[in-house]
Simulated assay, not measured.
Amino acid sequence: MAVANDFLSSSTLCRYKSYDFRFSFQTSKLDICKVPVIRYGSVQSATIGFSRRKHILQLRPCINSASTVGSASSKSDQDADTVPMPMVLIDQDSDSDATIVQLSFGDRLGALIDTMKALKDLGLDVTKGTVTTEGSVKQTKFFITQLGTGRKVEDPGMLERIRLTIINNLLQYHPESSERLAMGEAFGIKAPQKKLDVDFATHIHVKEEGPKRSLLYIETADRPGLLVEIIKIMADININVESAEIDTEGLVAKDKFHVNYRGAALNSSLSQVLTNCLRYYLRRPETDEDSY
């Protein structure tokens, strides 16, 4: 019932104006491979699959909703003019037992069954999910653990694969997102019109958070393999990463790392060394090795 409470909290239901949500629970495991692809706006029902039980989500229009034809036409016009900002957030701080992945793309996301299947193909288990709506933005959260061990994801390479897998699914099922994502340059149907100057887009700050750790904040132009390289640079100078928050907002990566050096916060000299190393790498036009 924990999953049901997450999905059906009163604060969530009151925000949905277009649909009335109903769930039924069965103990059998969902065979995701047999579920048809669900695209935005094409169906009236959706199935959300989790590894431990099956949840069936039925979307029914509210009785007092406005004219369907008129609202659909108005929405279509708005969609044609404005493509929302795609956002993928990987949070390692908020839950001690699971990695939290939050995904939003305006109100265009559907049931995300293909995304959950892709995560399972990576050897991961989606243990819980929540959906909330704030204004016109729908946010979906997945609580992810490693399949078999039940532990949160710690490996930076796997975290980067999770990020790129979700972005790849966005590009596949919402091709219009390619003009707002850095990955759209190479993998989308339409490259972003806006180009970021890496020198101007890159900001690095190190702040002490008590005697035992520091907070490293990095904002820079997004590209594949970015997270892995950042972790590698810190490992090369013996800086330990305790936890991280990986935030992809369109063309920009905004990452926070809780770090320490031999169990202590970084002093000013080491903070400067770290900043210089990261700035050198981030401003290079290309990496020496191929990434994901």
Rank of each mutant, 00 (worst) to 15 (best):
V3Y: 10
V3F: 08
L8H: 03
C14Q: 14
R15V: 00
Y16Q: 06
Y19K: 09
F21A: 01
R22H: 09
F23R: 03
Q26R: 08
S28F: 15
L30M: 07
K34I: 06
V35Y: 04
V35L: 09
Y40L: 01
S42H: 15
Q44T: 11
T47P: 00
R53M: 11
L59P: 00
N64M: 13
S67H: 07
V69F: 08
G70F: 14
S73N: 05
S74H: 08
Q78W: 14
D79R: 09
P84E: 09
L89R: 04
L89I: 14
S94H: 15
S94A: 15
D95G: 09
A98F: 12
I100H: 04
I100R: 06
V101Q: 06
R108E: 09
G110P: 00
A111S: 08
L112S: 01
I113K: 06
K120I: 07
V126Q: 04
G129I: 07
E134I: 06
E134H: 11
T140N: 07
K141R: 15
F142R: 01
Q146C: 10
K152P: 04
D155G: 00
P156Y: 05
E160M: 04
R163S: 10
L164D: 05
I167W: 03
P175I: 14
E176L: 12
E176Q: 13
E179G: 01
R180Y: 06
M183C: 01
G184V: 03
F187L: 14
I189F: 15
A191R: 12
A191G: 01
P192G: 07
K194Y: 06
L196K: 01
D199S: 08
A201Y: 07
T202W: 04
H205V: 10
P211N: 13
K212M: 10
R213P: 00
E219G: 11
E219V: 11
R223V: 10
E229M: 05
D236I: 06
I237R: 11
I237D: 08
N240L: 12
S243N: 13
A244Q: 04
I246S: 03
T248W: 01
K254S: 08
K256M: 06
F257Q: 00
V259K: 01
R262L: 12
L266F: 02
L266D: 02
N267R: 07
N267A: 02
N267G: 00
V273H: 14
T275R: 08
L278K: 02
Y280F: 14
R283E: 07
R284K: 13
D288N: 03
D288T: 03
S291G: 05
